[in-house]
Design a protein around this nucleic acid. Structure first.
Lengths: 146, 146
DNA sequence: TTATATGCAAACCCTTTGCAATCCG
DNA sequence: CGGATTGCAAAGGGTTTGCATATAA
């Protein structure tokens, strides 16, 4: 897998865009963190590191990263989008703990196949899907007992 | 199935709430339409029928209907929630046409079972899920050819 | 009567946009 | 230098909330 080294600068320049401190910082932040970040947290983390950046630039940069397939945008239904770096992990869906907000990933080939069948039965040509399972994670189940 | 006659008045009163023209109107509107309505469309339809109602009341009423399990809230990821009457249809998930916005429903028991397995494998106790397939519906595929 | 529900407008939250200033190339 | 990019603040879009008024029971 070529995920270890992705040169954002090369991609950016190839597209005739400019490689800026802010773009590099957002990309680094998404790459280094354990996924599922929202714009606000990226904004605050970078500000905390004395990187001069605005919310607007965070959003504009994420838009570019999503466009070039480096980042995936998640909608968990709570009003704010989450973003995860696509490098190092293939397609997967999510398990979300409704109590603590923990997010786990899952992959299930059978479900993937069934989705294709469902689409075919309904005469749809699929482009993508959202599959999210909500419930209590192991830790939060134990909390309930106390 | 007892879907033919649900007396909202009875439910509302049982809860110590008041049965108002507005609540009745929103409920009727959701029951009579072919599902997947957003708040704005309900608001405008009712206004168009000379029913005095505000957006705030539409939202407040829907909240009650969702709470008492009469209506399901859908998040299709485009920023506005859709609502569908739960009467007359059991659990189902959705196929959404990314071109025309058409929404179809599907049920697949195998997927439902697999979800349980996935949850179990990850030590989650499931409460609900979102499963949406996005693509082109039959009509829009044909449009593409032209 | 009297507390609940309503309408209105303002507030909210997240996100996007306009624009002058900045900076990459 | 010159146009792409930025920061700021304002605007947007959907939804919620505060409050005085209207209304169900």
């Amino acid at each position: 897998m070529n995920s270890a080294r992705i040169d954002l600068r090369a991609i950016i320049k190839q597209e005739g865009l400019r490689y800026t401190t802010q773009r590099e910082a957002v990309w680094r932040e998404l790459q280094s963190s354990d996924n599922h970040r929202d714009a606000e947290s990226i904004y605050f983390t970078l500000r905390g590191r004395s990187i001069n950046i605005s919310r607007a630039t965070v959003y504009r940069t994420i838009e570019i990263l999503v466009k070039y397939n480096l980042v995936r945008k998640l909608d968990l239904g709570d009003g704010r989008s989450r973003f995860e770096c696509k490098l190092g992990s293939g397609h997967h869906d999510h398990l979300i703990c409704t109590k603590c907000g923990r997010i786990d990933e899952f992959v299930n080939d059978d479900v993937e196949e069934l989705q294709k069948s469902i689409a075919a039965e309904n005469n749809y040509v699929l482009s993508n899907h959202i599959h999210q399972l909500f419930g209590l994670c192991e830790n939060c189940q134990n909390e309930e007992d106390k």
